[in-house]
Simulated assay, not measured.
Amino acid sequence: MNESVYNELLSLVSPLMKKKDTQMRTAICPHERLTATLRFLATGQPYECLKYSTRISPQSLGQIIPDTCVALYKVLQKYIKFSNSTEKWKEISNYPHCIGAMDGKHIDIIPPRNSGSYYFNYKGMVLLAIVDANYRFLLVDFGTNGRVSDGSVLQNTRLYEKLVEKNLHIPPPDDVTENFKNVLYVFVADDAFPLTTEILKPFRQAFLNSAKKEAYS
Rank of each mutant, 00 (worst) to 15 (best):
S115K: 13
L195R: 05
N114M: 00
Y52H: 04
V126L: 08
E32W: 02
V75M: 05
L195K: 06
K20V: 12
A211C: 14
N94L: 02
K78W: 01
V183L: 07
T144A: 10
N114D: 07
I80K: 12
P194G: 05
R136P: 00
S115Q: 14
L154P: 01
I199K: 05
E198A: 15
Y95C: 09
N94P: 01
K20R: 14
I64E: 03
L38T: 07
V164E: 07
P66W: 10
I92P: 03
L127C: 03
I56P: 04
F142N: 15
L138C: 00
E91H: 13
G44P: 04
T35E: 01
F193E: 03
D150C: 07
A27I: 12
S210R: 08
L127N: 13
V75T: 14
V126C: 07
G124F: 12
A27K: 14
S14H: 15
Y185W: 03
L34W: 00
F207H: 08
D103R: 05
S210F: 05
N84G: 13
K201R: 03
K212R: 05
L16E: 08
Q63F: 12
T177Q: 05
Q23D: 06
P173D: 15
N2V: 06
A129V: 12
T35S: 08
E161D: 12
C69S: 05
V131W: 04
E3G: 13
A101F: 02
S60L: 14
A133S: 11
P202Q: 10
P173V: 09
Y135L: 08
N145G: 12
F207K: 01
